[in-house]
Every structure is written in C-alpha cells, then in structure tokens.
Design a protein around this nucleic acid. Structure first.
Length: 301
DNA sequence: GCCCAGGTGAAGC
DNA sequence: GCTTCACATGGG
C-alpha cells in the first residue's frame, strides 16, 4: 500500500560501519543484505550500493528530511577529516575505515540508550534496548514478513513503569537510573528540546543532573543526538588508547584527558573519537581470545 | 569460576 | 579533595 523508497547518492559513506559502531543500537543486518532499523516511528531498510544508499519504508513518505538528517547525508566528510591531527594513530584509524559518520539521533532515545550502556558490551546494549522496545514501545509496520518492530518508548511511557518492570528487561542496576531520568523528562524537570540551543557546557551540566548520567554518557548524547561535534566521550577503551599513545607510563587524571582531547583533536574531536573507537573495535568482534581479553591493553592503533 | 563490558554514585579515606 | 567499591547480567 504505502511503501516508499528513495535513493540517496553518497560518497565516502560506510553505512555498515556507521550503523554498527556503537552510537545507535537498533540496527541489524537485514536478510536482504542491507540494514533494518527504526528511526522515530518508522521502520526502515537501508541498502548501500556503489555510490548510493537505498531507503525503503512501509509508510508513505514524500519528505525524506528525517532520514537525511538522521544519516547526516549533507555533511562534507573530507572537510571533517582534514581537521584531524596529522599523526599515525589518526591516519591508521581513518585509513582503516574512511566513511564512518556520526548520526543525528533523537535525544531521548539516545539518552535512554546510553543510560543502559554502562559496563555493557555493545551486543548486550542492543539486546536490552530490543527488549525495552518490545515491552514498552508501539508496534510499527515493517517490510519483512514475520518480523515485528516497535518504536522506542517515549519518556512518558517509561515514567509510568515501575522498577520491577524495567528490571525484567534485563537492565539490572540501571533500572532506577532510567526510571528516574524518564520521570525527570516526562515531568519537565529537563527540557531535551532546548538543550541543543545552549552552550555545550550548559547542556552537559543539565544532562549530568539526571540520575545515571555522568560525564561520559552526557558527552555521548551531546555528540550523537545534538551534534556538538566537540564532545569527546571518554570510555574505557578510549582512555586506554589515549594513555598508551600520549601519556605512556604516567598516572593520569581524567580531567587531564578531557583537556587534552578537546585541544588536541580539534573542532571535530567527536568525529575523531568515533574513528579511534571504531578502529579499536575492528580488532575485536569474535577475534578476541581469552588471552587477549585478560591483557588489559588497548589494541595497537 | 574468572574477568570484562561505550559508567555512575556513594561511601571511605 | 581523591580512591574504592557495589551495582545486574551475559559473553568469552
């Protein structure tokens, strides 16, 4: 009935890397070879061909701005890459994957997802988000038979849940954090729609008022949802990498790392961070032996 | 069984 | 102030 599809011509866009690089958690490889996911209340299938991305959605669609914005198709990546520091680690990361992009996600979904991310592997975050959407989201139409999909539950819906229901979604100790934040958003203690217009420091401070949101998760939301491209999330992997690359054998305070990162990686530090993060992760999935896992050393970059 | 995972908040010095 | 620890759950 209302099926819509659209082709977007792109260059330097690695769709798979972008959708699976740990910034969004609702994309899976599709049976047909592309990627299936949910953006807002739309199920979408994206397929990359040479020089283009094909988008298919079961709902009628005449205006594709929502997807152009989500995929950040108008970004001139070369301009971004040119601002990176010219040094071996960055070159290695950009050589390994030219075309990794930052998405522009819905702030609430991004915030809630990253609250669930703490001390979880990306695969597990995906699983938790899946269960959460199945339990609390609304069913939406798909283009794949026998595969149902659900929207990401809004803050108001989760605010009505109780902690036990959330824990049933396998999120463990994160349940009270998500619940508290959902209630703060739902009752207007914080206005997510306004954060994007604030200076980054103020937006970050407001996010960090929320339960379960510290510096790292706040930076993820600033970067992946609001497009503050200077935001530089420092997780365990980035921390190890920066230590071994720039501060070998020195005890390091985290504030020092943030100061270094913001000055060293330039105005698109968030992009640089994502390239470094993705590059490190490339050496990981499935290839990680018990021996390597116990070494506590950042992969060589 | 053990260690780790895109951390945070609270308790202990 | 800074350091240490608990917090659920699942994978390697």
């Amino acid at each position: 009935m209302g099926v819509s599809c659209q082709t977007f011509f792109v260059s330097n866009y690695e769709l798979g890397a972008t959708l699976s690089s740990g910034q969004a958690f609702r994309w899976r490889p599709s049976d047909s070879g592309g990627w299936r996911g949910v953006v807002g209340r739309r199920w979408v299938r994206l397929t990359q061909t040479s020089g283009a991305i094909l988008a298919e959605t079961p709902l009628p669609c005449s205006d594709w701005d929502w997807l152009v914005d989500y995929l950040q198709l108008r970004i001139d990546l070369d301009l971004v890459l040119a601002t990176f520091p010219d040094e071996p680690p960055m070159r290695a990361a950009t050589d390994a994957c030219r075309g990794l992009r930052l998405l522009r996600q819905d702030p609430w979904e991004c915030l809630a997802s990253f609250i669930l991310s703490s001390t979880k592997q990306i695969v597990q975050i995906q699983q938790i988000v899946d269960v959460l959407c199945n339990c609390f989201g609304s069913r939406i139409p798909t283009l794949e038979k026998d595969r149902e999909a659900f929207s990401f539950p809004d803050a108001g819906r989760l605010a009505q849940a109780d902690e036990t229901e959330l824990r049933a979604c396998k999120m463990g100790f994160r349940a009270p954090y998500l619940l508290g934040t959902a209630r703060a958003v739902a009752n207007g203690d914080i206005d997510l729609a306004k954060l994007g217009y604030l200076p980054i420091e103020e937006a970050r401070a407001q996010l960090m008022e929320l339960p379960g949101v510290g510096r790292k998760i706040a930076d993820c939301v600033l970067l992946f949802a609001y497009g503050f491209q200077k935001a530089f999330p420092v997780d365990v992997w980035i921390l190890r990498a920066l230590k071994s690359l720039y501060f070998p054998r020195r005890k390091l305070k985290i504030v020092r790392v943030h100061a270094f990162a913001t000055s060293h990686f330039g105005p698109y530090g968030g992009y640089a961070q994502q390239y470094l993060f993705h590059h490190m992760r490339l050496a990981l999935p499935g290839r990680r032996s018990k021996h390597q896992a116990s070494q506590r050393v950042a992969p060589t970059i």
